[in-house]
């Protein structure tokens, strides 16, 4: 495969999709500029800020660091797959301000909500550390997550600030 495009099969937000990608294209750009899935944002282009977080086979990853061809045969989920109804606590607690980090924050947060057993070993603040937010100081985000977990009955008391 060279700079010419190649067709890959992938599943994006539950739909099997065939897309032509070139070797140099990033997953983030394919999502945003080719598929119109502009919910994932670019904040840094180097895997620091997490604004471009999507799930790859269920795991949160930075889509700015993934060459698009690597998702061949795999399952990609973006912020567009998240139902607004799940986000009540995030609205109420002030988890979003400017919103540029929010799609990434929500992706990581919802992954934690789906995998509450992670809290047996990890604190929420550690799990969320890959999503930089410059507005909230994180309290709104952590409060929303804590509430959502409690509402789901999955709140074993999260280990807070556990030292590594």
């Amino acid at each position: 495969m060279s700079t010419n495009s190649v067709s890959i099969e992938t599943t994006i937000n539950g739909e099997k999709t065939s897309i032509d990608v070139t070797a140099t294209e990033r997953l983030l750009d394919v999502l945003r500029y080719r598929l119109g899935l502009t919910g994932s944002k670019e904040g840094c282009g180097e895997g620091e800020c997490g604004a471009c977080t999507v799930y790859l086979d269920g795991q949160p990853v930075n889509s700015c660091l993934i060459p698009a061809y690597q998702v061949r045969g795999r399952v990609v989920e973006t912020i567009e797959s998240i139902a607004p109804e799940q986000l009540g606590a995030f609205v109420a607690s002030g988890a979003t301000q400017c919103g540029a980090c929010s799609p990434g924050v929500v992706m990581t947060a919802q992954w934690i909500v789906k995998h509450p057993h992670l809290l047996q070993s990890h604190g929420l603040r550690e799990l969320m550390a890959g999503n930089l937010c410059r507005c909230t100081g994180y309290d709104g985000i952590i409060d929303a997550l804590t509430e959502t977990l409690a509402a789901n009955g999955s709140a074993e008391e999260p280990v807070s600030g556990q030292d590594r």
Binding site: G47, G50, P60, V61, N62, L65, I66, T108, G130
Partner: peptide, 9 residues
Amino acid sequence: VGAVQIQAR
């Protein structure tokens, strides 16, 4: 190493 997104990759 990084955070969960980097650890996953």
